[in-house]
Every structure is written in C-alpha cells, then in structure tokens.
Amino acid sequence: MTFLSNLQLFYSRKIREALRNPAFVMMTLTIPLLYLLLFAPMLKRFTGMAEFGSTNVLNFFLPGMIVVLAVFGGLFVGFGMIDEIRQGVIERFRVTPASRLALLFGAVLRDVTSVMVQAIIIIAVAIPFGLKVNIPGLLLIFPLIAMLTAIFSAFSYALALIFKSEDALAPITQGISMPITLLAGFLLPMSLAPGWLQVAAHFNPVYYAIEASRTLMSDHIDAQVVMEAYAFLIPLLGLVSWWAIRKFKTVIS
C-alpha cells in the first residue's frame, strides 16, 4: 500500500511539474501534428505500392510515427532528472522511507501519460486524412506503446543517475536514438533492407513495436507478429526496470 500511495504522490508531482511548463505542454501537443503536417503529404505517391500495405498508406506510416513518439518521449527524459539531482530533490526523497520503485515509476508513468496523449492526438487527427481505425487493433497498440515508452524512460533515468551530466547524456541518447529508429523501419519497411540489417533489427525493441503496430493497424492482423512484440517487450521492460531501480537504490553520490 505504501508503494501505491507513494506512486500516486510522485506521479502527481511529475504531472504538476509538466503542466507548469508551458513549453512542455505546447511541444507535447504540437509534435504529433507536425509529424502529420510535414510528413503525411509526402505519402500520396506511395499509395498502392505493395511494401507499404496495399490498402491505406497512412495506416502503414502512422504506427511508425507513434512508435518514434514513444522512443523520443522516453529516451530524453533523463535531462530533467539531472536537474533534479542537482537541486538535491532526488537525494531528499531517498532520505525518506518512500519507495524507490515509486520514485522511479512516478516519473516513468508521467512520460507514458504524455506519449499516450500524443498517440491519441495523432490518431484522432489522422482520421480525417483517411486513417482507418479498428478498435481491437488500437487496444493492443496502446499497451505496446506504453511499454516502449516506459522502457526508454526508465533507461534514460538510470543513465541520468549514472552520468549526472548533460554532457554525457546528450551524446549517448543521440547515439542511441538514431540507429534504433532507423533500424526499426520507421520510415521504410525493414523488408526492403538487406539480410544483415534485418537480422540486426531483430535485436531492436523498436522494430518489434513498429511491426506489431503496423499489423494491428492493417486489415489483416498477423497474430504471430503481435505475440512476438509482446514476448520481446514485456521481459525487456522487466529487465530495464530492475536495472534502473538498482541504480536508484545505490548509485547517486
């Protein structure tokens, strides 16, 4: 019970912090629109090409955009925590009997919330542009997106605790974000890639999330692909959380 009450306290704190930051609110709401506005018009020419799904090209590309929102919405959150470490806020919480797991997941759930809001916006706005939604598919996409955000968010917070410096965190997160998004086929499907790239993609959580989201948004859901994604992301979330919580318990100095 302490855990749940602590989680609620830390979550409310992070949500309040976010809502008080006008830049954060503005960017959270406009980034999904920018993806659609700047990218969707380029898709017209792909209509009908087999690689991009025979029916609806937006249904093919939108999952990639949502997954990238999740990656970016998680991977860069560590910067905020470096600031908190510097202020002494994290240390202050660690001296109380508060649950460390709640301290971490209060922040992670805030990040998941903001990505969920973005995903809902991008889907809602894409409908008038021709996105076809199937509700069961969406209900299976959201947990995947939430898990992916949580994985990158917990990972980013752990990195922040280890390095405690923007100078270290910036190159690391940049260095990670580029290959994992490209190597997931977020723009072009991995089926266009040569064999070695396809093999490499199978070690990438983002790849599974995109593949599963695509099939879940298509007319013919491939249950195998969806199961693979869940089977990859659930244990990975457990692993990253375990690692991050260890850092929360021991690292800060």
């Binding site: 704190r13 912090e17 008080r20 930051n21 202020q87 002494g88 806020v89 240390e91 202050r92």
Partner: peptide, 17 residues
C-alpha cells in the same frame, strides 16, 4: 530514515512546487 532529517548542501526544495 524514519527518525532522521537531512538538509543537503543543495537543499532539496522542488523548483516547480
């Protein structure tokens, strides 16, 4: 942790609260 209080050099007040 129940019986101590700690005020670090940097303090710990939350700038957003």
């Amino acid at each position: 942790r129940e019986v101590i209080g700690y005020v670090s050099q940097s303090g710990g007040a939350d700038k957003d609260a």
